[in-house]
Design a protein around this nucleic acid. Structure first.
Length: 424
RNA sequence: GCGGCUAUAGCUCAGUUGUUUAGAGCGCGUGACUGUGGAUCACGAGGCCGUGGGUUCAAGACCCACUAGCCGCCCCA
C-alpha cells in the first residue's frame, strides 16, 4: 500500500468522510466566499505556476529566512534550480512585472487561490502542502486607504463565513529611512540584556534583531517589555502613514489592536504589518498574515512598485468555521431512478437523459440492483425523491415518485416531473 | 530541526502480570421481505495487531530503530 506523502491530505466530500477539516464542501465554501467578496471590491483572479526558478524566492523571500530553508528545491534536467512555491507574493509580483502591468493606469488588484509547499513538521493547521488565498494591490501608490480597504474586505469576508472571535493586530515596522537607526538602538538595548535572554534570542540578535521582539519564551518577556518599540522611532512619513491607516480603520468601525512587537518573517516587508488570529487553532493561531512590501519589485529586478497584500491559510480558515455551516446534503441528487426489469432499465437511461437536459440532478442505478437495494442506495445518497419504474409504469405513461423523507408516493408523468422540479 | 504522546477490522476503540482460534460498536454484505429505503432480528465477510529488528519456551502486549499521526517548541498560513 502506497500512502500519501507526509504533510499532504486528501480532500473528500463530507458524505464519504467524518473529519470536518478535510471536507470538500468546506474548501469550496471558503474559496467561493473569497471569490465573491474579493469581486465586490474589484479584485481579479491571477494564477501563477506552482514551480518557479529558485532565485525568485531566494531574492524575494530572503535567503536567511526560515521559509527559504523549508523550500522543496530540485534541479531540473537542464540544470536549472527550481522550487515549489512556499508563498505566492513573489510570483504575483514577478508576473506583474513580466506582463508589463505597471503600465496599467491606477492600481492592479489581484487575488490568487492555490497550494503552497513548505517542508515543515506537520501538525494541526500546518501542512507541507497547504492551501492559501491571498490578495496583492500593486501600483505607484502607498496610500493607507489601500491598507484600510483590504482589511475592511477581510472583515466582510469573516462576517460572510460567520467566523467570530478573531483579532486584528496591526503594526508599522518603518521603512529604509527609519528602520536602520531603530535596529541600531534595539541591538544596543538587547546587548545590555543579552545574558538574560534565551538561546534563540541570542542567535536572532545577530541575524534578525527585529524577531527578538516576537519571542514567546516566558523568561524573555520581562526583558522584552523594556526594549524600545519601533512605534516611537518611526520617521515622520511612516508615522503619518500609520496614523492615517488607524484613523481610516476607526472611520470604518473596524476594531483592531496595536501590536508594537508584531514583525513579519519575510525580508521584504515595510511599514504596515498585520495579522489576524483565531482561537480554534492551537499553536498555529495566525489565520491571516500580511503587510506592505514596497521594495520587493526592485529586489527581483523590476521597476519601483509599491505593494500591499495578505495571505491566509485555507486549512486554518476551515478550522475556524462554525461547526455546521455546510449542509452536506446540498449536493445530493434530486431524483434517484430505480427500475425493475430490462425494458424499464433502458427506459430509465433515456428518461434520465431528458431530466438532466431539463436541469434536474438525476442519478440512475447503473448496477441493475433489486428495487430494495436501489432504494437503499437512494437513501444513502440522501436523494430527495426516488422514481420507480417498472413495466406497469411504462405502459401507463406515469411513474411512482417516492418522497424519501416522508415516504409518501404518488403517480407523476414526465411532464409534471419536469415542470415541478426544473432546475433542482 | 528539537521534545512528548500514539499506531489493533472501512471508522471509533477494548485487549489484564507475556500464553491455545485477537474482540465490540458503527459501517458493509446476505436473508427474514419475488415491485419499496430508514427501524428490528438472524447470519456472514472483513486483521502481515504501522514496518523492521531484538528479548523470551512463548510477543498485539516488553526493548530498540524506522515510518506516520497528534500535541508542544521553532517558524509560519
Amino acid at each position: 500500500m502506497i500512502n500519501k506523502v507526509r504533510g499532504t491530505q486528501d480532500i473528500l466530500p463530507a458524505r464519504l468522510l467524518d473529519k470536518t477539516d478535510a471536507q470538500i464542501e468546506r474548501w469550496n465554501l471558503v474559496e467561493g466566499a473569497a471569490r465573491e467578496v474579493f469581486r465586490l471590491f474589484g479584485f481579479d483572479e491571477i494564477r501563477t505556476p506552482i514551480i518557479e526558478k529558485t532565485e525568485l524566492f531566494e531574492r524575494g523571500v530572503g535567503t536567511e529566512t526560515d521559509v527559504n530553508k523549508e523550500m522543496y528545491t530540485f534541479e531540473d534536467r537542464d540544470g536549472q534550480s527550481v522550487s515549489l512555491r512556499p508563498e505566492s507574493t513573489a510570483s504575483v509580483v514577478r508576473a506583474y512585472i513580466e506582463h508589463g502591468l505597471f503600465n496599467q493606469p491606477g492600481l492592479v488588484k489581484l487575488y490568487y487561490i492555490g497550494p503552497q509547499f513548505r517542508r515543515e513538521r506537520p501538525q494541526k493547521g500546518r501542512y507541507r502542502q497547504f492551501g492559501q488565498i491571498g490578495v496583492e494591490v500593486l501600483g505607484q501608490s502607498d496610500d493607507p486607504a489601500i491598507e484600510a480597504e483590504v482589511i475592511e474586505m477581510l472583515d466582510l469576508y469573516f462576517k460572510k463565513l460567520s467566523i467570530t472571535g478573531i483579532e486584528i493586530l496591526i503594526n508599522s515596522i518603518g521603512d529604509e529611512n527609519c528602520r536602520p537607526a531603530y535596529i541600531a538602538r534595539l541591538k544596543e538595548a538587547i546587548s545590555e540584556r543579552l545574558s538574560n535572554l534565551c538561546g534563540n534570542c541570542r542567535g536572532r540578535y545577530e541575524t534578525n534583531p527585529l524577531r527578538v521582539l516576537d519571542c514567546k519564551v516566558e523568561s524573555c518577556q520581562p526583558y522584552l517589555s523594556e526594549l524600545p518599540t519601533i512605534t516611537d522611532s518611526l520617521c515622520k512619513a511612516c508615522r503619518d502613514h500609520f496614523d492615517q491607516f488607524k484613523q481610516m480603520l476607526d472611520e470604518r468601525g473596524i476594531p483592531y489592536t496595536i501590536a508594537p512587537r508584531l514583525v513579519r518573517g519575510l525580508d521584504y516587508y515595510s511599514r504596515t504589518a498585520f495579522e489576524i488570529t483565531g482561537s480554534q487553532l492551537g499553536a498555529q493561531n495566525t489565520i491571516v498574515g500580511g503587510g506592505r512590501y514596497d521594495g520587493l519589485s526592485e529586489l527581483i529586478g523590476g521597476p519601483p512598485v509599491k505593494g500591499f497584500g495578505f495571505a491566509f491559510g485555507i486549512e486554518r480558515m476551515i478550522l475556524s468555521l462554525p461547526e455546521n455551516i455546510v449542509d452536506a446534503r446540498a449536493s445530493a441528487p434530486t431524483i434517484f431512478i430505480a427500475y425493475i426489469g430490462d425494458e424499464a432499465r433502458r427506459h430509465s437511461f433515456a428518461l434520465a437523459r431528458r431530466l438532466r437536459e431539463a436541469g434536474i440532478t438525476t442519478v440512475v442505478d447503473l448496477e441493475g440492483r433489486k428495487l430494495k437495494k436501489a432504494l437503499a442506495v437512494a437513501n444513502n445518497l440522501s436523494a430527495r425523491f426516488a422514481l420507480i419504474i417498472g413495466e406497469d409504469e411504462i405502459h401507463r405513461g406515469s411513474y411512482a415518485l417516492r418522497d424519501m423523507t416522508t415516504g409518501e408516493q404518488k403517480e407523476v408523468t414526465e411532464t409534471e416531473l419536469v415542470n415541478n422540479l426544473n432546475g433542482r
